[in-house]
Nucleic acid binder design. Structure first.
Length: 889
DNA sequence: CATATCACG
DNA sequence: ACGTACGTGATATGC
């Protein structure tokens, strides 16, 4: 007789995780859930002697349940990294046990188990389902027993249909009705509010099913009747959500679930890596020989901590350096310009050396510093842009960086979240030996804490080793996806260029900012008094909540827009309210000036280094989904310019040397030029070939008038249409922006597409291409995946379609200015110019230039920018200069 | 720690 | 019919 054991892997891993005390191995990897899972497996194997065994896992984030109900499992807090990092370990362990595992994208573990129990019923096999979830009780039958974990994992409570009858007075299938009525907070299944287990059971004993309860809702009394009648739909939906789907199209069959026992050496090796010493003894595995062939696993690493006094270790490091394949440098702190670098690990295939930074600075480690600084010593690392800055501030130059795992991960998927860009996350993605997450080792936020040296070094060593393996996989991936050149010829060199700009910093004159701050303070104070007077009370104007109450309740102004939490008071709303009350202009002005004061006056002053007077931003190269850079600590890409009051801030950005100039060059209409090129639209190309004013040209085509008859209003509207085109246009967005009706907006768009038919074709084609390939690309083959382009949800899909239209445009523009930056850096070096590139603001480059180079740079910078790449239309860069960034306009 | 707002391209 | 313009980061407020 066959005996199947079917385990709900996710549920048991969860139970084990919360039931077991924390447990970590030497490199900081959490193993408590793996341990709990293992003890449960051992117990089942011993007591049940199964002929077949299977562990099912949930796969993917979106299941068919989400299609009907977006909030399914919505309220659930996300899996802690301490647990998620253990899933790969559990899966590896199951393989060592010889136990098969199924998962299928779009289905949950209980659906897979439900399908298999149906097969057990049909084939007359005996099955035991093991889970922590009572939902599973619906699967019980003559053949199927359900075991639910009780406190911990190894103790279970078994339910046959008779036992379910005894305990609940229900047949197994009625468990679904039970949940339909009472809901399940952990899965965010609503049920009927106020109905708990007791009430639900009473109703079911009386009526038998959700449908019957709803039909007889008239018989109920008082509050309960109201609740049931109000939430009929919720109950029906909840029942649907609680129903385990038993027709999963499984790719594997019963044959593959056969269990033939484990091989002792294999399991011994797995336990040894996990450091499960007690289990090894319990199973008498300690003496089992270890098959040493195959890759070295993370826990096998030979880790040498190098100290200046340890001659053996020094010799070993010196020997290993030529064979080093990867480096990991632990930088603590978000801002690399003020970070602590604790230690560096270098990994070769047979050993990893860890050097604390203090040791690295000693005389005995001079050879190591030379190696770091050597251009010939190739280095593969992680987040080396940050590392370079951090080390530079500690007086350690680093050269010869040839590959960066984080940068590669970004190119391979620029939308990957921050956690998917960590070493731990990447190891999971590529199926490499697990590495603990930074969060699980260090904690986060206020709880951040370095572990003791030994654990810290083991962790850093594990990361260095992982970098080596990851880089191998990624090089292939980059090649396969056609991004090899983009990586090696552009992004990797750019990383060094950025580091140079950031270390140089930009000079900021604190006295200019302070002066502006003093003026602002007076005006803000004055406005504050005026606002209090007009409101007839004092309140916190900076609080949207309090402001909303004053405007819409006290003063009774019409509500134009709501936010999730209350009234909207954003600038659009306030502008609409201006005709109703004199307080509005003052509030708008107050907002504008207090923003300047807090973000730009106070914010920037804090960022000026007292000894140099420089501000050092940090460009992030792995954040923006389109390929753009972003700027942090402080953000120098959003310094005010549009309004004169704010623009004054730019007067503080001055050259760092006396007599030098600030020089700025920006691309003119780069995105529309890119669009002209990639769409091949005849009219758009002609416009740029003749260097026409593009908004006037658009107005003339859209409104059907001669260019000289285009008035300023027509031009303004055409400009908005051009913006819309670049963003992936919709009539709603345009109507909102222009304050016209949707119908009128739709007409503008249609007229635009009649005039620029090539653009219409591009928009259609790119969306089709995204649907076909699952991604779009820029001119330099930068990729962005758009899985939601196939979503059935209108919103998600529309968003993906607009992104498909926008990303090749914005992304190609980003490619181009990056090319210009790398070229510009080279030109400055080869021509031995003293001028320095300081800032990039998406379509603008800012330099500081000595007077005697002004003439050269006025020509060189736009030349390099315009020739960065050859398109079917010319690129144009406008250059200007002055004594401050303000004057370079 | 999330939300609303606003600065830039 | 659905309901949003694309991409970022910093700040203050309030739970």
């Amino acid at each position: 007789m066959e005996k199947w054991i079917l385990i709900d892997g996710n549920s048991i891993a969860n139970r084990a995780f919360y039931a077991m005390p924390p447990l970590t191995n030497a490199s900081g990897l959490h193993t408590n859930a793996v341990y709990g899972f293992t003890t449960m497996l051992l117990k089942l194997l011993e007591e049940e002697k199964p002929t077949h065994m299977l562990v099912a896992f949930d796969a993917g984030k979106v299941t068919f349940r989400h299609e009907g109900y977006g909030d399914y499992k919505g309220g659930r807090q996300k899996t802690p990294s301490e647990l998620s990092e253990q899933f790969p370990l559990i899966k590896e362990l199951l393989t060592s046990f010889g136990i098969s595992q199924f998962e299928l994208s779009g289905y949950e573990a209980d659906d897979i188990i439900g399908t298999l129990t149906r097969m057990a019923d049909e084939q007359g096999a005996e099955a035991l389902v093991v889970s922590g979830d009572k939902d599973m009780l619906q699967l019980a039958s003559d053949k199927v027993t359900v075991a639910i974990t009780r406190k911990g994992v190894s103790e279970v409570e078994r339910y046959s249909p008779a036992e379910i009858q005894e305990k609940y007075g229900l047949v197994p299938l009625q468990i679904i009705d039970l949940k339909g009525l009472m809901g399940d907070t952990s899965d965010n299944i609503p049920g009927i509010p106020g109905v708990g287990e007791k009430t639900a059971l009473k109703m079911l004993h009386e009526y038998g099913s959700v449908e019957q309860v709803l039909e007889h809702s008239g018989d109920l009394k008082g509050k309960m009747k109201e609740k049931v009648e109000q939430h009929k739909d919720d109950a029906i939906m909840s029942k649907k959500l609680a129903t385990i789907f038993r027709e999963v199209p499984l790719e594997q069959g019963v044959e593959e679930m056969k269990y033939n026992g484990y091989e002792k050496p294999v399991l011994a090796e797995a336990f040894r890596k996990l450091e499960f010493k007690s289990l090894m003894e319990r199973l008498d595995l300690t003496g089992e020989a270890v098959g040493a062939e195959g890759a070295v696993q993370a826990a096998d690493l030979v880790v040498v901590t190098v100290t200046a006094g340890d001659d053996d270790a020094l010799a070993s490091l010196s020997c290993a350096l030529p064979k080093v394949e990867s480096i990991y440098c632990e930088v603590i702190g978000e801002n690399p310009h003020q970070s602590e670098t604790v230690a560096i690990a270098v990994a070769s295939p047979d050993a990893i050396h860890v050097i604390s930074l203090d040791e690295a600075k000693t005389d005995a480690l001079g050879f190591f510093r030379d190696w770091l600084a050597s251009t010939d010593a190739a280095k593969t690392g992680f987040d080396m842009h940050r590392v370079e800055l951090s080390l530079a501030w500690h007086g350690l130059p680093i050269n010869g960086i040839v590959f960066d795992v984080q940068l590669a991960a970004y190119l391979l998927d620029p939308t990957s979240t921050e956690s998917a860009q960590t070493i731990s996350g990447l190891c999971g993605k590529y199926g490499l030996p697990s590495v603990a997450s930074d969060e699980s080792v260090f904690g986060k936020g206020a709880k951040f804490k370095l572990p003791e040296t030994e654990g810290l070094h083991a962790f850093i060593a594990a990361k260095a080793d992982a970098v080596r393996r990851l880089a191998d996989k990624q090089r292939t991936e980059l090649e396969r996806s056609g991004m090899y050149k983009l990586y090696y010829d552009l992004e990797q060199p750019l990383s060094r260029v950025l580091a140079g700009m950031e270390l140089q910093g930009i000079r900021a004159d604190a006295s200019v900012i302070e002066q502006l701050g003093a003026e602002l303070e007076g005006r803000v104070l004055e406005l504050k008094g005026k606002i209090y007077e007009l409101a007839g009370m004092e309140f916190n104007i900076g609080s949207p909540k309090q402001l909303g109450e004053v405007l819409f309740e006290k003063l009774g102004l019409p509500v134009k827009k709501k936010t999730k939490t209350g009234y909207s008071t954003d600038a659009d709303v306030l502008e609409e309210l201006a005709p109703y009350h004199d307080i509005i202009p003052s509030i708008l002005m107050y907002r504008q000036l207090s923003k300047l004061q807090s973000t730009y006056v106070e914010g920037l002053l804090k960022e000026i280094r007292p000894n140099t007077g420089h501000i050092h931003t940090f460009y992030r190269q792995t954040i923006a989904a389109t390929g753009r850079l972003s700027s942090q600590f402080p953000n120098l890409q959003n310094i005010p310019i549009r309004l004169e009051e704010g623009r004054q801030i730019r007067k503080a950005f001055v050259p760092s040397e006396p007599g030098w100039y600030m020089l700025a060059a920006d691309y003119s209409q780069i995105e529309l030029r890119v669009l002209a090129h990639i769409s091949g639209d005849h009219g758009l190309k002609e416009a740029f070939l003749h260097d026409m004013d593009i908004h006037t040209k658009t107005a003339s085509d859209v409104f059907g008038v001669r260019p000289e008859d285009v008035d300023s209003n027509m031009r303004r509207q055409a400009k908005a249409v051009n913006f819309g085109i670049v963003y992936g246009i919709s009539d709603f967005g345009l109507s909102n922006n222009l304050g016209i009706t949707r119908k009128e907006a739709a007409q503008f768009i249609e007229q635009y597409f009649v005039a620029f038919q090539g653009v219409r074709k591009y928009m259609d084609d790119i969306v089709m291409q995204a649907r076909r390939d699952g991604y779009v690309t820029t001119l330099l083959e930068r990729r962005r995946y758009l899985p939601e382009i196939k979503a059935s949800n209108f919103n998600l899909r529309s968003f993906a379609e607009r992104t498909a239209m926008n990303t090749p445009i914005q992304g190609t523009a980003a490619d181009i200015i990056k090319l210009a930056m790398v070229k510009m850096d080279q030109e400055l070096r080869t021509r031995e110019l003293k001028s320095r590139m300081l800032l990039q603001v998406h379509d603008e480059l800012v330099f500081e230039v000595p007077e005697d180079e002004l003439e050269i740079m006025k020509k060189l910078v736009p030349d390099v920018m315009e020739s960065a790449i050859e398109l079917d239309v010319p690129l144009k860069a406008d250059v200007s200069y002055g004594h401050s960034w303000y004057e370079a306009k």
